[in-house]
């Protein structure tokens, strides 16, 4: 299995590639008022309105820097009602992949309720990599933001829509 590796602070994390739709450079986001801090905003991804979560804020509490290596990882997110959504995850140093098997992962030994999206860990020659579980990511009501944005976008003469 292939995993995309990225970094938050000095720690490395990975995401299974099979859940990834595409990786794009950083873009300008449409801010959502009153949304949690970790929601960077929305952007027009090939005609679809996609909400973006800044994993840096979510995990380390400080926003991703605008670097070449900071990228939006567009993943297939299945909500509880089994509907597929595209979700953008913002992370720094998303420039490398790693190939490993499911059984290489070990449980981290400690589980934090607030951070259930952080899963098992694997080791390579540079150290530890923790897996991010997409399905446990917090955006239960991300759909609401999307609708709100669409409404806003309509009012603003569709300047974001193709």
């Amino acid at each position: 299995m292939l995993f995309l590796v990225f970094e938050i602070g000095d720690e490395r994390y990975c995401l299974e590639v099979s859940r990834i739709i595409e990786i794009t450079p950083m873009v300008i986001f449409k801010k959502i008022p009153h949304a949690p801090a970790y929601v960077s905003g929305l952007f027009n991804y090939r005609g679809t309105i996609v909400p973006v979560i800044d994993l840096s804020i979510l995990i380390a509490g400080k926003p991703s820097r605008p670097l070449f290596s900071t990228r939006i990882i567009l993943v297939d997110y299945v909500s509880e009602d089994k509907v597929h959504h595209i979700l953008g995850l913002l992370a720094e140093r998303a420039t490398e992949t790693i190939s490993c098997r499911e059984e290489d992962f070990q449980p981290p030994g400690i589980e934090v309720d607030e951070a259930q999206y952080l899963g098992d860990v694997v080791f390579d020659e540079s150290g530890m990599i923790q897996r991010v579980r997409i399905e446990k990511l917090p955006p239960e009501n991300i759909r609401d933001y999307q609708q709100e944005y669409e409404f806003v976008a309509l009012k603003e003469n569709n300047d974001f829509l193709p």
């Binding site: 099979s18 595409e22 990786i23």
Partner: peptide, 17 residues
């Protein structure tokens, strides 16, 4: 170079799929 890196990642994703 950044663009190539990005491209290669996306290619890898496609290949994996």
């Amino acid at each position: 170079a950044n663009q190539i890196n990005l491209l290669s990642l996306n290619a890898a994703i496609e290949a994996e799929k």
